[in-house]
Design a binder for these strands. Structure first.
Lengths: 134, 134
DNA sequence: CTCTTGACAAGAATAATTCTAATGTTATAA
DNA sequence: TTATAACATTAGAATTATTCTTGTCAAGAG
């Protein structure tokens, strides 16, 4: 049976391992993080598979690509609308689950159709604060 | 006279050209955009100079590095606090000058010290809307 | 004039990501 | 059961943005 037709997504062991790694993950991992984690159980895992899977998941709307980190893309398996708080030192990202009303008047949007928004909060995490002291 | 000591920044012709290109620029250009534009008047311009100048300006707080575009960094010479509206199709970025009150409660910040925030609005620009119709 | 400092240019090096081509897997149709 | 079609996987090459290295240059200080 084409059991994956429901998803349009074949559930291979590699993909399951990636999904499993994502499940409940709040770390906003990079492709490299995912590659390294999943390589433990699948030593032949390749980056192509990681990126292919990420793109498939992204098309299905099951993962978000974050452009928060200047060096690399991060991925967020939590697709509920939420915002992020980023440590400017270690780049750790935590979720902010709260609705903000940030309406913009027509004359500011210059004819754009608005789709959504995302707030990035910047700060220093407890760990980096304590390092700064020493 | 070390006329640049005021800035800690030597005003060379190349840098002036970059600053000139930035002046009043609302396009949020990439390093490549800058390189191409300034190359017209300085054919020997190198990327090293572009990136060095950008880093110097960034350290002086005269330019912001935007991590909005997944493919490359964009630079914003407008350092007044403001937000951005991004066309999800062509990646054009326009400024949103408005203050929003987006306060977050202590229990959401997990011990982070908050520094600031930045809102990204997503939408479709008029040009891309009209292309979509055809 | 000479020395020091910082800037410039060219290209090499790096890092993240995407692409390519060959091979492997699986589910169904014959 | 076997062949086939469709899709996944892999390794590595290619690409792209950025950073680094090295040698050269120019301006100002002494």
């Amino acid at each position: 049976m084409e059991k994956y037709k429901q998803f349009g997504f074949k559930l291979t062991p590699q993909r399951l391992a990636i999904l499993n790694y994502f499940n409940g993950n709040k770390e906003h991992p990079s492709a490299d993080d995912i590659y390294r984690a999943v390589s433990k159980s699948f030593p032949t895992m390749s980056f192509a598979t990681v990126y292919n899977t990420l793109e498939a998941l992204r098309n299905k709307g099951n993962v978000l690509e974050l452009t928060i980190d200047p060096n690399k893309k991060r991925y967020d398996p939590n697709t509920m609308p939420h915002h992020h708080l980023i440590c400017v030192k270690c780049k750790r990202i935590i979720d902010i689950h709260k609705e903000f009303s940030v309406s913009v008047s027509e004359d500011m949007t210059q004819g754009f159709d608005l789709i959504g928004n995302h707030i990035e909060f910047y700060g220093v995490c407890p760990k980096c604060k304590s390092i700064a002291l020493s």
